[in-house]
Amino acid sequence: MHTALYAATRTLRAVFVVWAAFTLTFVALRLLPGDPVALMLSGRGGFAELTAQQVAQARTELGLDRPLIVQYGSALADALHGDLGASLQTGQPVSRMIADALLPTFQVGTLALLLALMLGTLLGVAANLTASPLLRQLLRSLPSVAVSLPSFWVGLVLIQFLSFRWHLFPSLGDSGFDSVILPACTMAIPGAALVAQVLGKSLHTTLQEPYADTVRATGAGRVRLLFGHGLRNAAIPAATVAGMLVGSLIGGAVVVETVFSRPGMGRITQSAVSAQDLPVVQGVVVVAALAFAVVNLLIDLLYPVLDPRIRATGRLVTT
């Protein structure tokens, strides 16, 4: 009962967040100083001289002469039907562009997510399991070094060595699974570092709580304590970071796809921002927010499984 209510409130919240992201980008982009019509016309036909009449006509065509609230209403209604408008650069429907770009980004992103989770968990656990202080110090500082590396550089270094020098992987473009690996690794490194840091820290914290001493006092060893008790307790704060991880992957896609000249959501975004192509930017943000909201919803639904205290009250225990 409580769990069902909890799930319902969390789902409502996810819907609210996507709607709010749509509204936020709508407002942000309509309030910008540039005139979208001038941009659009100049985008299509070069820097031609525009007559006032041409501009007015274009405004009417796009419905920009209507009051802002009416524009917002019809944009929202369209969005609900899957219509996110047309690109100012190319005139193509935004939803088509996104649909085409989704698959390559999804491939890289999923692989990167798996890599990041596996590598990060491994590092975080290993740092708390080892009895050697030197090794522990090393395993702890590795993630903090990794988060300091600019991801564009990580990608460039991988290309330099694995493609140019050793010819192991294709350097650029989209040509089958081989071409997914390097971008996925580039995206996974900061993510893995994030997971390792948060999981490592929360494991460290939870193993110092009084209950851990109770377990130790029963004669249980490190391994039993860590896997039988620590991991489950540490997973609760660490699960939150998995949501952040997906967010950072979505953002990272922009940089990584640019570095590897891959098609995908990131590339669309990169060129749309340069060209101030508002409908495309808005479409990307809404889709990203949707993906982000779904992931966070899944994590929220995971909490009651991890933490019996939430099952009882339907509330997150915040300490």
Partner: peptide, 18 residues
């Protein structure tokens, strides 16, 4: 809550667009 629900880099890019 809303601003934190958009991946940070994308939010920055939206603002750069604007």
């Amino acid at each position: 809550e809303v601003t934190m629900s958009v991946p940070p880099l994308l939010l920055s890019l939206t603002l750069v667009t604007a």
